[in-house]
């Protein structure tokens, strides 16, 4: 199948204040994603998961390596649903913003699209005129996903999209992501530290440690027979093995 994302030998470092040497965050990271695939990116904090996401979206400068992204309008869903929606705007305004940027849709047309997306993400139309502060965490994260969908992306990068949510809500939001993935053949780069949720959700998982890829494989094989010690440790800590 057609590859939509190819990252080769990616190196990223950050300048450290007060120190001369730069901090190496990613070292020779290579990965690829096929159209409509869900790739899991697992690792602990500081392993460079979010940095990969930001590099792919061109939000940070890279030192070395190539990133080839063939996906149309890649979008991102952030971890903290409380800071990723503009608190001063209404749901409808936020959802319309990508359309204002990228299309010449009329106001009425935009509202129609907002309604249809609200339906897709399982929210009622009457939320349209609410502000983010009047929504629950789960509702907010759905709106974030909806905002991303407005651009009709082929690749969605979800950076810990459920870890700030309650457990029962987590399951619902994951369910939503999965159903959108199936309907739209949407490729998802799913970043998480939670190996338990990744098992059922991802087609393939890449384990990251200190900016380097440790191991990768299908969840079933990876979980059943991890080759690396670190993977084994992660699985044990998550209570899987």
């Amino acid at each position: 199948m057609e590859e939509i994302l190819k990252v080769e030998k990616l190196n990223v470092s950050f300048a450290q204040s007060l120190k001369k040497n730069r901090k190496q965050v990613l070292t020779d990271v290579s990965l690829s994603m096929k159209k409509g695939e869900i790739l899991g990116l697992a690792g602990e904090s500081g392993s460079g998961k979010t940095t990969i996401a930001k590099a792919i979206l061109g939000m940070i400068p890279i030192d070395q390596g190539t990133i080839t992204c063939n996906a149309r309008t890649p979008q991102m869903v952030f971890q903290d649903p409380y800071s990723s929606l503009n608190p001063a705007k209404t749901v409808s305004w936020i959802l319309q913003e990508p359309l204002r940027m990228k299309t010449k849709e009329t106001a009425a047309g935009r509202v129609e699209k907002v309604k249809s997306v609200l339906h897709q993400i399982g929210l009622e139309e009457n939320l349209m005129n609410r502000k983010p502060s009047e929504l629950s965490g789960g509702q907010r994260q759905r709106i974030c996903i909806g905002t991303a969908l407005m651009s009709e992306p082929e690749l969605l990068i979800a950076d810990e999209p459920v870890s700030a949510l309650d457990v029962t809500i987590q399951a619902q939001v994951l369910q939503l992501l999965k159903s959108i993935h199936e309907k739209k053949q949407l490729a998802i780069l799913f970043i998480s530290h939670d190996l338990r949720t990744m098992y059922q959700f991802c087609d393939r998982i890449v384990i990251l440690r200190n900016g380097q890829i440790v191991e990768e494989g299908k969840p079933s094989t990876l979980y059943a027979s991890p080759k690396e010690e670190y993977t084994r440790l992660l699985l044990q800590s998550a209570g899987i093995r």
Binding site: V167, T168, A171, R196, T197, S220, Y223, A224, I240
Partner: peptide, 15 residues
Amino acid sequence: KQLIAAIPVIDLEQD
């Protein structure tokens, strides 16, 4: 039951 259902199930083939 809902809370428990929200915990992802991992049925590994034990080897």
